[in-house]
């Protein structure tokens, strides 16, 4: 059986991150962030995630991020891929 509405991208290598997007959550937007640099960049990571979600038309869902110190461009790329996979486009 194919699980619909869930996509994952990334890895747990240093400087990368793992993102899981669950679009079955219809009511609201829940973002959970674990990061090795949370004390220094937690707010910025959240801002980039929210911005990327908006750019890709995602308003509701459950987003789980496990970050190993990725830079912003990597966060955007991984999130876009996870969304595509959740939407079944890839």
């Amino acid at each position: 059986m194919k699980i619909e509405g869930i996509g994952q991208a990334g890895s747990l290598e240093s400087n990368d991150l793992m993102i899981m997007v669950d679009l079955n959550q219809k009511e609201n937007l829940i973002i959970e962030i674990e990061s090795i640099v949370k004390e220094k960049f937690g707010e910025q990571i959240e801002a980039v995630i929210k911005e990327t979600l908006t750019e890709n038309g995602v308003g509701n869902g459950y987003i789980k991020v496990v970050d190993k110190g990725a830079l912003d461009f990597a966060i955007r790329a991984r999130l876009k891929t996870a969304i595509k996979r959740a939407e079944g486009r890839q």
Partner: peptide, 10 residues
């Protein structure tokens, strides 16, 4: 420029 400006530790 690469990392963004770090927050201050609480």
């Amino acid at each position: 420029k690469l990392t963004g400006k770090p927050q201050k530790i609480q």
